[in-house]
Design a protein around this nucleic acid. Structure first.
Lengths: 155, 155
DNA sequence: TTCGGGCTCATACTTTAGGGTGATTTTTAA
DNA sequence: TTAAAAATCACCCTAAAGTATGAGCCCGAA
């Protein structure tokens, strides 16, 4: 308990002791220098500078480093993981391949890229996508993706 | 240039001026108090304390806060109500109009339809979308939409 | 075994999207 | 007030997307 208090106020105590010693030093210096009248201003200035530096040192020692916490936002997939709405898929009559194409569309891939990903020709993807649009009753892939997300057909 | 320098060293200059003024004050006090011999120690102590406080104040003012980057995980599209991530929008440098276009893109509208919705020409939408793709570093509207949703820029 | 659905691919064509450049006007910030 | 950014529009050209149609292959169900 007592030692804890001592430890906590260590800096303050040290400073108090240092201050006391310094006042003694000043008193001693005073005796030496008081005679030299023209050195008085220098003496005063020295004290001012010394205590300023002391104050700065004290502040730096005693204050916890100022920290500004910058939050860097990291986007992660949200907790409830995606469960495909099989009912909607069946209702629309989408085949497995058509669903594959729709999923890759949603990832922003072009028809060319989808065809490479699935190892089929570009024309095949065009056929699939056309069927997807037909079955979902949309005109464009962006609409298909939008609707697919709404219906939980794709994540 | 000159004003910049002044601004940068504002604290230092202020301190210098304050110090000068204080030395003047001390000089004046000296004339008053030097006669009262027994007040001398108090005078010295006051100076010491004052400059210590000044130093502390200075240190607190001048220390730059240390920045700590903390990664904060943000789970996107959790709740039903959408809150636009303004930070990401600013980070990407998207303007209001570009955001409008992106939003309508996400709804599955064609450029033609977007232009009609916003009462501008098709070419204008093309320009906006091109800027959106450039700023988001994507190649297609589907990618822009996908990224926009991930970053909570669009619902 | 036939028949339909799913998957594949092709050709031809139209529409939409996107890239590049340049210009004018309006708005905003310094 | 001046400079920068935003918004508007145009023209030209290429790439990608989408439409329409036809056709061959495979597999499982009737």
């Amino acid at each position: 308990m007592a030692s804890n208090l001592l430890a906590k106020n260590k800096h303050t105590i040290l400073y108090a002791v240092a201050l006391a010693l310094l006042l003694l030093l000043l008193k001693w210096l005073e005796l030496k220098l008081i005679i030299v009248d023209n050195a008085y201003e220098i003496y005063m200035g020295a004290i001012a500078v010394f205590f300023t530096v002391l104050g700065i040192w004290l502040a730096l020692k005693l204050t916890k480093p100022k920290t500004v916490v910058v939050e860097k936002q990291v986007y992660v997939n949200n907790g409830p993981e995606f469960i495909i709405n099989q009912t909607e898929v069946e209702k629309l009559g989408l085949s497995k391949r058509e669903l594959d194409v729709l999923q890759l569309m949603a990832e922003g891939l072009s028809n060319q890229e989808i065809s490479e990903r699935l190892f089929v020709s570009l024309n095949t993807i065009k056929t699939h996508s056309a069927k997807v649009f037909e079955k979902m009753e949309v005109k464009r892939r962006t609409q298909a993706v939008e609707m697919g997300k709404r219906l939980s057909i794709i994540p």
